[in-house]
């Protein structure tokens, strides 16, 4: 089966300003998104995420390279009937009401009126906007606009959903709702591709990630494989240890932090962990917790960005 998204050597530069200065937005980008995956497209602001997505949707024309969605060339009109797209900070026809708005987008897919209205009502329910069906979009809050934006991307029951920064500007509840919808779509067998710079969202739900910086792809793969599986350090918390004993632990710990009776220490080497635990216990101290720390996506992300300059 062909990939949901395939990008090969994609480049795009824009001409800006009066003199047409050349600004490279993306350089020689290549990666694939398999069908059925929930793919997080990561990168700091200005990394080229939106440019890549717009090239996929045929809103901009690449300066070099090629892209395919669902086996068809990106920009082909026909394939768009199988794709849903939510642009970054979307603006919609504010003179339309919620239901009217979804109905209009449905009509662009030539969905029969009856089916369209039913689907629109279903989607309003999915994104928790049933109460706002008769409200003009100009009265919607930012979170509501984002949610109805997601609903319009799903009006044609797409195989592939492309979402550009779907969580930006939302409160924690709103973000969670969007996340839930994305997971649900994946579970229904759809491919979900979304860009973000909020790492925790990715960490929680993604099967695969791609990281871009300054228009170049840094890495792509399974989240579990990208992150270093090795335990980086242990955080041990204990209490009731006399100061002299605590001083004696210093050579093996990098960080000591006192919080009331509780002392937290950071132990970088695994072989020292057991020794410290037994020393604390022998001296009459009580161990409260031992927490192993693996590399988080944030640390990985920063490491990769630093490496790429």
């Amino acid at each position: 089966m062909t990939a949901a998204i395939k990008i090969e050597g994609l480049s795009k530069f824009f001409r800006v300003g009066f003199w047409g200065r050349r600004v490279q937005a993306i350089t020689d980008l290549s990666f694939e998104v398999r069908r059925g995956d929930l793919f997080g497209f990561l990168g700091p602001n200005g990394a080229g995420k939106t440019t890549t997505i717009k090239a996929l949707m045929g809103l901009i024309f690449p300066s070099g390279g090629q892209a395919w969605i669902l086996g068809k060339k990106a920009g082909e009109v026909g394939v768009r009937s199988r794709v849903g797209y939510l642009p970054e900070s979307p603006y919609f026809y504010e003179y339309l009401k919620g239901l009217e708005f979804l109905d209009f987008y449905g009509s662009l897919f030539q969905i029969p009126k009856k089916v369209r209205v039913k689907k629109a009502e279903e989607l309003l329910k999915l994104v928790n906007l049933e109460g706002a069906a008769d409200l003009h979009l100009r009265k919607y809050s930012k979170g509501m606009l984002q949610r109805i934006g997601l609903a319009q991307a799903l009006i044609n029951d797409p195989e592939l959903v492309i979402l550009d920064e779907p969580m930006t500007g939302l409160d924690p509840i709103g973000r969670r709702e969007i996340r839930d919808v994305m997971v649900r779509l994946r579970n229904e067998g759809k491919t979900v591709f979304f860009s973000t710079h909020i790492l925790s969202d990715v960490e929680m739900i993604c099967d695969q990630v791609g990281i871009v910086n300054k228009g170049k792809l840094i890495t792509t793969g399974k989240l579990g494989e990208l992150l270093n599986p090795r335990i980086e350090y242990y955080e041990i918390s204990f209490s009731r240890l006399n100061p002299a004993e605590l001083e004696g632990l210093k050579p093996w710990v990098t960080n000591t932090f006192q919080d009331g009776n509780l002392v937290h220490v950071t132990v970088p080497a695994e072989e020292h962990k057991d020794g410290i635990i037994s020393r604390v216990q022998k001296a009459g101290g009580t161990i409260h917790s031992v927490i192993p720390h693996r590399e988080s996506l944030e640390e990985y992300f920063l490491r990769q960005l630093n490496r790429s300059g």
């Binding site: 809103l59 768009r80 797209y85 939510l86 919609f92 662009l108």
Partner: peptide, 14 residues
């Protein structure tokens, strides 16, 4: 300017 065109042109409309 209002970026409404993004959603329209991403539908099967030439």
């Amino acid at each position: 300017e209002k970026r409404t065109i993004y959603t329209i042109l991403s539908k099967p409309i030439s």
